[in-house]
Design a binder for these strands. Structure first.
Lengths: 235, 235
DNA sequence: CGTGGGCTTGATAGTCCTCAAGTCGGGTGG
DNA sequence: CCACCCGACTTGAGGACTATCAAGCCCACG
């Protein structure tokens, strides 16, 4: 007897809830509330909410960001299928950032009490959640490093590689035709650049035969050189 | 009967281990190994270590950073007395960044098994650790936002305010004479600027009567304007 | 078929970097 | 106690990278 929710979990939750014990699984199932579906570019979690909203993405991408000044924002991380939204908020009690859908998105809403329950009664699950938070922090630190130390080419190469690898880790992905649903402005907001300059930089990467972004897909033409751009290049 | 370790903890651990239950306290005491003392500018944790090293700082400051290219690095966070070093590494099993002392430093080394034990047997302590990791991630996200969206003045104002507030939260600090042991190069590496430009920007803040950094101390002359620089300023 | 949003591209300007030389201060060894 | 020395700081000139602004284009959508 499988619920719809558990089938979904089997297929998509490779990063967080895979291979759980029976108690953990039943706890999660008890606290999984409902499934939500949103179009692209919708607010999932608003900054400053006293969020009881915890989601696990089943289909589609989203991104976390903070508003800066008037019209500018900083994208902190992209969220892929299988990943959690709002775990940090559930732990700290407040959300300091917003989350918005990048593509049409489906997600399972989970009762935020899962977190408290996990720490109280399911140590293995709690540890998993802790590691998830640490891994997320890891990614933000990596992005900060690139924004702080790299020029436009290096930052963009990093973003491409990073998103490609995260997808590849979950299953086979064609490097010549990987999903890459970011618009120019998303890349700009993630990397601390402008849309216009992103465009120029993409042109250069295309002309150099390194990578092409087209039609919301990424085609990596020269993985070694792309990797070299991220690892070696100074400014 | 108080051990040296527990006295230290009473006075300095306001962010992490304060007001613990008896079981938690005894667990920590069991796993607190020894005290270490280091001069300034020494490596505490090296990148790539399979770190069993978990510390709690008792005196002095340190900072986490990642090496970028050849000679450049990105400082991710500063670590103040009472805070933990190496918790992320203890959770994930690998360290992706280095930690270096900023001032002469004393710290208590804690057996990294504390983390596992906490999750297994002390849920309240585990939750506290989880929150600590989330708060640390929070700070990195905030720094990324400033580096991504702000000009030099805004970034520097943010850094001053952020470090001042973290100290003020732990006890009363004179805004006109707050500890600020960063060299130009540390500010540069944290904010994605160069030492030379940090210097010019500090000059402007001093000439505008907003803040002065001198002799490793920070003197905030106009807190409202300093705050406004961080919150309002666009470009 | 009109419209709007995203993309593209050019010209111009600004912020910040690079490089380099000179100053200052503190620590060390004689 | 003093001379020396090294690292940190300071300041200037020139240049690189990226932002800004603006206009035209293309496509998807209503």
């Amino acid at each position: 007897m499988f619920s719809v929710a558990s089938e979904r979990r089997d297929r998509y939750t490779q990063g967080v809830f895979n291979s759980l014990s029976g108690g953990e699984t039943s706890l999660i199932e008890t606290l999984t509330l409902r499934s939500v579906a949103l179009p692209a570019n919708r607010l999932l979690v608003g900054e400053g909410e006293v969020g009881n909203s915890l989601y696990q993405i089943t289909h589609g991408w989203a991104y976390r960001y903070r508003n800066c000044a008037d019209a500018s924002r900083q994208i902190l991380d992209f969220l892929l299928p299988g990943e959690l939204v709002g775990l940090g908020a559930a732990l700290l009690g407040v959300t300091d950032h917003s989350v918005r859908t990048l593509t049409p998105l489906r997600a399972g809403a989970i009762d935020a009490r899962l977190v408290g329950e996990a720490f109280r009664a399911e140590p293995a699950l709690a540890l998993r959640l802790g590691r998830y938070v640490a891994a997320e922090a890891e990614r933000v630190a990596e992005l900060l490093t690139m924004v702080g130390c790299g020029d436009a080419v290096k930052r963009l190469a990093f973003l491409m590689l990073s998103l490609y690898r995260r997808q590849a880790r979950q299953g086979h992905i064609d490097p010549l035709n990987a999903p890459f649903p970011l618009r120019r402005q998303h890349m700009a907001d993630a990397l601390g650049l402008t849309g216009a300059h992103i465009n120029r930089t993409l042109n250069r990467l295309r002309q150099d035969g390194i990578a092409i972004v087209e039609n919301r897909r990424l085609s990596i033409r020269d993985l070694p050189r792309l990797t070299a751009l991220v690892e070696i290049t100074a400014t």
